[in-house]
């Protein structure tokens, strides 16, 4: 299975709205603290002093989906054909 290497942060929030309704996110240093149903994931949004990016690593999004317990839904919507 091939994924794009990065996913736009706006697309990540869209996917979470669908797969993890009611999730919350807030910024903490170089991370977004994403919480859903008692699970917490620290999603990277910068790189230690380098310019902040609007794109999130796909591997980070996949790991977040496992931690939040919504992997099947999230990975399905990360496919290029999924809109």
């Amino acid at each position: 299975m091939s994924f794009a290497r990065f996913i736009a942060i706006s697309r990540v929030w869209e996917i979470l709205n669908f797969c993890a309704p009611g999730y919350t996110q807030r910024r903490s240093r170089d991370k977004y603290v994403v919480q859903f149903q008692g699970h917490t994931y620290m999603l990277g949004c910068g790189s230690h002093g380098k310019a902040e990016t609007k794109d999130i690593r796909a591997s980070d999004v996949r790991k977040m989906s496992r931690t939040l317990g919504v992997e099947e839904c999230v990975v399905g919507r990360m496919q290029p054909s999924s809109t």
Partner: peptide
């Protein structure tokens, strides 16, 4: 991450 699980890096 496995323990802690809430992070990854590349």
């Amino acid at each position: 991450g496995v323990q802690p699980c809430g992070l990854s890096a590349e």
